[in-house]
């Protein structure tokens, strides 16, 4: 059943087709990503009104929240790619795992750093063992584990498969980790830190946030295309079509 349902996707599982497809999408995705990010951030940083409680320091939200959301979004897409790659033995999906992992790790790191920078004026300290921050930190470790594992084998194809399996194990564990940390946090910290209440956010603040959110998603897609293209080239370098491509480009340059 599954086989026939997704038959129309088959051509895209062919590395060569996917390489060219990514190449065609990349400029559009990248341009759109940069445009929306500029729009969202400039609007958010310069034109939206200051918060009645936090003043201007809340503006980091336009970077922090989108990167935090897409750090998890990237992990889910990575795990989905890993699942497809392992169950149906589709190699491009396995390579996509490797393409997404570092991007997701950087998003996570951005979320952590901006979270800490936000914490300083709000909570008076760079780091608190807040449930969300802790979960985000664990997410970073999961990413680092996947990246380290994929690079630890002399035979690269083997490393990617094993790292894909770890990504799936991680996604099964992620909710457990998240709720454990939340439970632990309420037990330990309780009322000492009250996060600023988020009542209905004003549309003038919400729109730039949504646009930034879209921008980082587009950037994730664009960077994934970019990285996936180079992964495909690396793993297919012995194939005739890659050689042809290289010769073509060489001729064009000279």
């Amino acid at each position: 059943m599954w086989g026939s349902m997704f038959r129309w996707l088959d051509p895209y599982a062919k590395p060569e087709t996917l390489y060219h497809l990514c190449g065609r999408w990349l400029p559009y995705l990248m341009t759109l990503a940069i445009a929306t990010l500029l729009l969202g951030n400039i609007w958010g940083l310069a034109f939206s009104p200051p918060d009645y409680q936090q003043g201007d320091s809340y503006r980091i939200i336009y970077i922090h929240v989108p990167s935090a959301i897409w750090s998890m979004g990237a992990y889910s897409s990575m795990a989905i790619a890993a699942f497809i790659g392992l169950v149906w033995q589709i190699r491009v999906a396995q390579w996509a795992v490797l393409a997404i992992a570092p991007i997701g790790a950087v998003y996570t790191a951005i979320a952590l750093i901006t979270g800490a920078a936000w914490g300083k004026p709000m909570w008076g300290t760079w780091w608190v063992w807040d449930a969300r921050l802790t979960s985000e930190l664990v997410l970073l470790f999961l990413y680092l584990g996947v990246i380290a594992l994929s690079g630890a084998f002399s035979e690269a194809a083997r490393g990617i498969k094993v790292a894909s399996l770890l990504a799936i194990v991680g996604v099964v564990n992620l909710p457990i980790i998240h709720y454990s940390v939340e439970w632990w946090n309420t037990l330990h910290q309780g009322a000492t830190i009250t996060k600023f209440a988020k009542p209905s956010i004003d549309p003038s603040m919400l729109w730039p946030l949504l646009i930034s959110l879209l921008g980082l998603a587009l950037l994730l897609a664009a960077l994934t295309c970019l990285r996936l293209r180079s992964q495909i080239l690396i793993f297919e370098q012995h194939r005739p079509w890659v050689r042809q491509l290289v010769e073509q480009q060489h001729e064009e340059q000279s």
Binding site: F141, L144, G145, A148, N173, I177, S180, V181, W184
Partner: peptide, 16 residues
């Protein structure tokens, strides 16, 4: 490497 992989998974157990 093994520690890096396992430690995050181990957190819930440690907590409870």
């Amino acid at each position: 490497l093994q520690a890096l992989i396992i430690l995050p998974l181990y957190i819930p157990l440690l907590i409870f």
